[in-house]
Amino acid sequence: MSTDSRGILYPARLPSFRRVPAPAHLEDLVRWFWIPEWDIAAGRSSRQYVVAYPACNLVVEPERVTLSGPTTRLSYRDLTGRGWAVGALLRPAAVPSLIDAPAELRDSERLLDAPELHRPVVAAMRIAERDARHHEAVDAFAGWLAKRVRPASGEGLLANAMADLMDGDPDVRTLPDAATRLHVSPRTLQRLAIRHIGLAPVEMIRRRRLQEAAERVRLDADASLAQIATELGYADHAHLTREFRDRLGFTPSAYRRGL
């Protein structure tokens, strides 16, 4: 299990958070499962800010199942009381089985009628021992996905490769960069992104750079903002600051001070 916190702006505020790799038979459909748990004192709350990955998430909570679309801005949730969630960060190949037009869910979510998913995950999360309940919850989730989601098609695998490249290779900074690496046209990538993710490719690249910039600002106190901007492909410090302000609502300097 992994506790990697990329995309979470204030990981120290999370009471408990795990990322669990997808089992081998689902690696083309799920990037990982994620499980936060919290128990907040009465009268208090914990606000969690997230720069989400450019992807759809399927999420089971005690009272509901939701499918959330890709986001284009900072999102947050106020945690109160006691609770949990079990989510699957979906790979692009899985998305057409759950929604025809993921762009319709951009910056939003919809309830999913999936009692066969909800019941066993809720039952698993009632197990007292943490590792055991997480294992059982992921097994139940994976079993439902294996039955409900079609195996990855050739187009879906290409969409996965596009997402992996844009998310994992810092040298890919433009749509033509990605198209050249994958030996397809930019128009093909645009079509794949809209059908399988719900965002334009350029938005996917911008989201990765913003996640990386926030992580560097948070973890590398010795690096100047100008150095971070240059290393991540921003034109200059001012470009990085504008991106932070436009997408997150505050500057990188303010973020670093707030930590």
Rank of each mutant, 00 (worst) to 15 (best):
P120L: 01
A101F: 12
L98N: 10
D100G: 06
E109V: 03
E104P: 03
A103N: 15
P115G: 02
A101V: 15
V95K: 05
E109N: 01
R119M: 13
D113C: 12
V121N: 05
E109M: 01
I99Y: 06
S108V: 02
A101W: 15
S108E: 08
V122H: 06
R110T: 14
A93K: 10
R106E: 11
E109H: 08
L98P: 01
P115A: 00
V121H: 02
R91E: 13
E104F: 04
D107L: 10
A103T: 12
P92H: 03
A101P: 13
D100M: 04
E116S: 05
L117N: 06
V95N: 07
A124E: 03
A94K: 01
R119G: 11
L105R: 06
H118E: 08
L111G: 14
R106I: 07
D107K: 10
V122Q: 04
L112G: 06
I99M: 08
S108I: 01
R91W: 13
P92C: 02
A93H: 14
L117S: 01
P120C: 05
H118L: 10
L98D: 11
E104M: 09
L117Q: 09
A123Q: 08
A101C: 13
L117Y: 01
V122T: 06
D107S: 14
L105H: 00
D113W: 15
R91V: 09
E116G: 00
R110N: 13
L98R: 11
S97L: 03
I99R: 08
L111A: 14
A123N: 13
R91K: 14
S108Q: 04
P115S: 05
R91G: 00
R119K: 15
H118K: 03
P102I: 14
H118V: 02
P102H: 12
D113M: 12
R119C: 05
P96G: 11
A124Q: 04
L117A: 06
A93L: 15
V95M: 09
L112T: 09
D107M: 13
R106T: 11
A94Y: 02
L98T: 13
I99P: 11
A114G: 04
S108R: 05
S97K: 00
E116Q: 04
L90Y: 00
L105T: 07
I99A: 02
V122I: 08
L111M: 13
D113I: 12
D100W: 03
E104C: 00
D113A: 13
P102L: 14
L112K: 14
M125F: 04
E104D: 10
E109K: 07
A93T: 15
M125D: 07
R106D: 03
A94T: 07
V95S: 05
P96W: 08
V122E: 07
A93E: 12
A94L: 03
A114F: 06
D100T: 07
L98F: 11
D107W: 06
A103Y: 14
P120K: 07
R119D: 15
E104Q: 04
E104H: 07
I99S: 00
L117K: 01
D100R: 07
P120V: 04
S97N: 02
D107Q: 11
S97C: 02
V121R: 05
M125S: 07
A124T: 05
A93W: 12
A94R: 09
L98Y: 13
A94D: 04
